[in-house]
Design a protein around this nucleic acid. Structure first.
Lengths: 243, 243
DNA sequence: AATAAATACGGGTTTTTTCCCCTTGCCTGT
DNA sequence: ACAGGCAAGGGGAAAAAACCCGTATTTATT
């Protein structure tokens, strides 16, 4: 999916939002339940959410996993494939973004609904780029979750409302957000530890001056003035994680 | 609760663990359900966990909240008080540790079961100090959760098993863990932002030298060599949070 | 073919951090 | 009453981080 397609997608989303178009419930005409897979690193959440979704009129949970890797394994042996995949963004082993990308290519019939604690612009963008159809925050109420699942199944898209993701702000940040490169992420990973830049240079087989270049670029891109600020901002944007 | 009492508590826990004593199910002799309150910052988790716990034979959820402040409000108007309170440790407004302390004093009849993503020694210790009766990780399976709730209700204590908190390691860390003072935490809060020590000194109305003293003390206590390391370790130990 | 962006490197300067060494007073628990 | 922890302050020096000035090559996009 290109950058342009994402923006288009979001524009379409906004139009839906503004016209207040709510598709009629086309589900359950056949009496068949819509099948759902759940992936989250907290197994207790997976299991309790399963009960909640099974309590929805048209839905049944057919797959559970606690990380991206496991999700792909389960997905391979699940037949037929689930209609919807509800997945957490930050998981160990294989995170939501990677997993979504693979699923989009392998099983395009499965619509992906991202579920996250964090209303972080770049993460949302990355999830949409990786092929997810909706992005919900974990503080949605069950009613809205059900509405979202319904709408993603019928229209292939869901926008949330004022209480959820702010697509307008998002769209703005897509245009202005600078990209962080792979090499910069490698650097960030090492910068987010108890090492000096000189030590980082050695580990990356680079000169200290090159490292300083990355630092400078990232200060600019993340809009910070110190290494501590850089690391904290990187953690907030899910570029790295503490551990 | 004194440090000694905590250690004693943990010792008792370990003895229970080692003897593999499982109390007979004394619950439900009267046919009454055990009442449970749930607090977690993710409302979706609260609502789905409610379904799970209501599906347990002897339990019924009578209170829901999404932060410590709200929990206390709800608790004030709930009558009779819930037998058990399942609560997250890290929440906005009022975190699990503060909330637990207040509840222990105001409503000692409510047994507190802490629920957290993080197996962090000092946090576990602090929760026990604040009066919680059990500490479960969020990756417990429903069976173990039910067993834990039963055991806390009947014996006032639960230890988890190998898959959960490692009490042996915990006990060791209680003995060796240095205490971080309030003033040091204040400093950490500011150090965990895009400020220089000089700026922090101004904000805390202290001389830069004094700030340097805090820095030095914390490097020692947290066993790190740099400001970045200090902040990351502080985040890991839940002394501060990124935001 | 040209522009842009990512990658890599160099020298020099200033500011900040880190690391030693130190004193004083105040409060709390034993 | 006194030990120990805490708050507050300090000098001097070395190391690291941050901020300037640049250059060159490759790769992708237009």
């Amino acid at each position: 999916m290109t950058e342009f397609a994402v923006i288009t997608h979001l524009f379409v989303s906004m139009v839906f939002l503004e016209r207040n178009v709510h598709s009629a419930n086309l589900v359950n005409l056949t009496g068949m339940k819509i099948t759902v897979g759940i992936t989250d690193d907290q197994s207790l959440f997976v299991k309790s959410l399963t009960l909640l979704i099974n309590s929805f009129e048209h839905f049944t949970v057919v797959l559970q996993a606690t990380n991206g890797e496991q999700l792909l394994e389960e997905l391979a042996k699940t037949e037929p494939k689930p209609d919807l995949l509800l997945m957490d963004v930050n998981m160990p082993e294989k995170d939501g973004i990677e997993a979504a990308r693979i699923i989009r290519d392998l099983y395009p019939q499965c619509k992906i609904v991202a579920l996250s604690v964090r209303d972080d612009d770049t993460t949302v963008i990355n999830m949409f780029k990786s092929g997810c159809s909706a992005y919900l925050l974990k503080d949605v109420n069950p009613d809205e979750l059900e509405r979202a699942l319904n709408e993603v199944y019928t229209t292939g898209l869901y926008n949330g409302d004022a209480s959820n993701i702010n697509y307008r702000r998002l769209l703005k940040s897509v245009e202005t957000a600078p990209q962080i490169t792979d090499r910069e992420k490698e650097f960030l990973l090492l910068a987010g530890s108890d090492l000096t830049y000189k030590q980082i240079a050695t580990r990356m087989h680079l000169s200290p001056r090159t490292i300083d270049g990355y630092r400078e670029a990232l200060f600019e891109k993340l809009n910070v003035q110190s290494r501590v600020g850089m690391i904290l901002e990187a953690v907030r944007r899910q570029l790295i994680s503490i551990n």
